[in-house]
């Protein structure tokens, strides 16, 4: 199962529409979830609408949350999406086997077994979550909370029975014209990672759409991290403790 989890606090303003990008992700089997971080009600109405639309196009869920609730929200969305993805797959089978198209159509006595299968698969299936972090200027005070949420998510995923990996990106990248930067390649354990966002230079633009496309690319070339190791300059070397 593949997920992108976008954490942002505002509107995209450069490049391809993030809604189109999310639809592309969905088309190749990647679910896109979006968490909007709002602290002083500082998200514009337009931003809220965009967040919802990105998630809808990406086949995922969206939530607005305050910084202090970020960890819980991130985990809740990840878990719910896993269950939903499995549920959709199981429901397709339901039609063949039981003639019902949703679980709700089944009488309660028959639901138990189906839900047991969903729970089991949710716990044991392999899961990859690419975290895509908006690092535009306004997010700066929230990055600590973001990092904590990522570590907390990693801990929960580690406790699953199925293999789970995360990767972390931020956007825009530090170099001029760079839409997105890999901070952490696929890993199942980040406890040894010192700092996820060392010395970030915040810039004003928010290229959400291009960044999503970048992550889709990353998913599709499974060996991205190894091949481009040299080009990721100082960022990667910081992870070696």
């Amino acid at each position: 199962m593949k997920q992108i989890l976008l954490v942002t606090d505002g509107c995209s303003n450069v490049g391809v529409s993030p809604v189109v990008a999310a639809a592309q992700a969905h088309a190749v089997g990647i679910t896109v979830n979006v968490v909007g971080v709002v602290d002083q009600g500082d998200i514009a109405e337009f931003g809220t609408a965009e967040i919802e639309e990105i998630a809808r196009a990406g086949g995922g869920l969206s939530r607005l949350t305050q910084t202090r609730q970020l960890s819980q929200t991130v985990q809740m969305l990840t878990r719910k999406t896993v269950v939903q993805t499995i549920q959709h797959a199981v429901q397709r089978e339901l039609k063949h086997v039981l003639g019902a198209s949703t679980i709700e159509e089944l009488p309660p006595e028959k639901r138990g077994e189906v839900v047991r299968v969903i729970d089991d698969l949710s716990e044991t299936s392999r899961l990859r979550v690419a975290l895509l972090i908006d690092a535009s200027a306004s997010m700066k005070p929230k990055l600590h909370a973001v990092e904590e949420a990522i570590r907390d998510l990693a801990l929960s995923l580690q406790s699953r029975q199925g293999g789970s990996e995360i990767a972390v990106f931020h956007f825009p990248g530090s170099a001029y014209g760079e839409d997105c930067k890999l901070d952490l390649d696929w890993t199942d354990n980040i406890s040894g990672v010192h700092s996820l966002f060392p010395r970030l230079q915040m810039r004003g633009t928010t290229p959400t759409g291009p960044a999503i496309l970048h992550v889709i690319d990353f998913y599709q070339k499974g060996d991205y991290g190894n091949r481009k190791n040299d080009e990721t300059d100082g960022m990667m070397s910081d992870y070696v403790v």
């Binding site: 549920q87 709700e104 309660p108 138990g112």
Partner: peptide, 10 residues
Amino acid sequence: DTVDLQSEVN
């Protein structure tokens, strides 16, 4: 949520 609640029942 039917699945969540049924899971508790299980």
